[in-house]
Amino acid sequence: MTNNGCLISMKDIKKVYKSGKVHVEALRGVSLDVGRGEFLAIIGPSGSGKSTLMNIMGCLDMPSSGSYDLDGHPVADMGIHQLASIRNRKIGFIFQSFNLLAYATTFENVELPLIFAGKPGAFRKQKVMECLSRVGLADWAEHKPTELSGGQMQRVAIARALANDPDIILADEPTGNLDSKSGSEIIDLFEELNRAGRSVVTITHDMTIAARCHRIIKIMDGVIEMESRNGHNKNVSISA
């Protein structure tokens, strides 16, 4: 352990995108710790860099500079093989557009991370049904995603994220494509998972959702502009 036991420990993370001669600084130095069992909301306007931050957190993208320790291990030291393994076992990623495989059934979609983890068939079957029950879709195992509503699809995605019992759920605007009732149900699920001990980080535009989280981070122009805990705002100086 190289840190204070935080699950996620980011120091001065910067991300620069090069498009032709233009350099876009998506993140301009973000430091952030996420503890175990925390429920964190990241808010901010479009293009503020919050998705970039989440992708780096989920090991889907690498920072241009700065250090990121996941569960005490520096991500920068990991190879492509190890990163895939981390994404598979430690992180459950949830996308705004669900990203379910359209041709596979609900069951098969949830089974996918278990296959990548090389789990045996009987175990997979049991685990998939357990995860589907958890999101209330046990009866929909043999349906295709196209037969499901948006809310149901996102619940399948959550079941999929849970398949390998990850330490942390990362959700990039999980309710962005849903009506408010379905969205609320998704957050209910997150709260339940969080109560069971999982860390949850979600990006959202919806302040009623953000209000249900333990902590809110507001990203603006690639830096953390504001951090509030339990409704008590506290200004955070921009990390230099």
């Binding site: 093989h81 994404r87 990623f93 990203n99 390998n164």
Partner: peptide, 16 residues
């Protein structure tokens, strides 16, 4: 390609 991205996000190894 998107599907490949999804699978990688779910932890599929490059070689698979």
């Amino acid at each position: 390609t998107r599907e490949i991205g999804t699978k990688m996000a779910l932890g599929a190894q490059k070689r698979i």
